[in-house]
Write a protein that binds this DNA or RNA. Sequence first.
DNA 1: AATGTTACCACCCATAAGTGTGGATGTCAA
DNA 2: TTGACATCCACACTTATGGGTGGTAACATT
Lengths: 200, 200
Amino acid sequence: MNKSAQLTDKQKDVFKFIYKRIKQSQLPPTVREIAAQFGFSSTGTVRDYLHALVEKGYIRVSANKSRAIEIIKENLFQIPILGRVQAGLPTLAVEEIEGYLDLDSLVFSDSNTFALRVRGDSMNGAGIFPDDLVLVKRQAVAQTGEIVVALIRDEATVKYLRKRGRHYFLEPANPQYEPIPVNEDVVLIGKVISVIRKLN
Amino acid sequence: MNKSAQLTDKQKDVFKFIYKRIKQSQLPPTVREIAAQFGFSSTGTVRDYLHALVEKGYIRVSANKSRAIEIIKENLFQIPILGRVQAGLPTLAVEEIEGYLDLDSLVFSDSNTFALRVRGDSMNGAGIFPDDLVLVKRQAVAQTGEIVVALIRDEATVKYLRKRGRHYFLEPANPQYEPIPVNEDVVLIGKVISVIRKLN
DNA sequence: AATGTTACCACCCATAAGTGTGGATGTCAA
DNA sequence: TTGACATCCACACTTATGGGTGGTAACATT
């Protein structure tokens, strides 16, 4: 297991294909499917590639099992988070990489997560704008201070959950709107775990 | 495809097993693995189950392909975007699904995309807060009105690119800060294509 | 000059795995 | 009581699939 082993461009292509297949279709490719993808006429070629990927610690394969390819290194397709950007682009200064944006945790979260398109500007103050997407984790309870999604008579709203005295309120982050008391008309759906805005 | 078809208890067990295997190990089981799991001595039994699950719309199988069992309904790479949320949770009303949040382009984006941790509150007005992550597509030119990342003497800032008269400015979205004229000290790095905020 | 790595090939083989045939038994509703 | 359906079986067949052997060629490193 060569730790510092880097992949060649072609090996990276093969790995990318396998990675994508596993993540997207949940069905790892067979050696022949890989061969077809890249135009290899021999399965032996693919075996060589798989062997290289195993050696370099990117995948694991089980002997004599069809499609038994596991991804070991996940980092490759994560997006580096830069804490600071320096001159000397376009190469990233590795030292500046603060971590990796793990989109897997967003994309491959369980089925209790969904995205909701935001309507209205009642949460402007929290940086949640109309047409933003909020990722919602479905749960029946939430803590005060969290941003939650609640149903008010079949209407979904995104608000802060706050407590005043003994009563709970759904509070907007825009002073133009009024807090809404939590009563039997209000059904908590879940809490907002992420905000995503796509521009352009 | 019988839509209202409900699963029997045993069929549910088989489905659960397949579901778990796909979710957990990323490797769908073979018919013989399913047989082994439930103690069936014939692969034909498994075929009957798979057939039932297909008929009832729970899975999809490809002919003559090993392990080619797909779970229907859930696209793991996409998160459903709900335009409206209705009562009757926890099942999602399919009719309300507005589309799918496609993070594929992010996960497999080329190396010219990176994430930048935002510092300071100069873009509060645009819903970009401190500690937010902005996804940046590296490019040397941008259009006015776009949110860009620029280097000002080795310091990275996120600002609007605006034009006033014949001059370009980097404009904050917070009136407490002053616009910065674009001159030779300013290097455009790229434009912001997405804003991501993780809560909790 | 020797060695190692990468990047391919053809060909073959054993077995893993999906599918087909033809049953058997039991349940439940028409 | 007929028929549809669910739940099993044995056994055979076909195809899919991983792996082996033994090459060739280019290229960089030692």
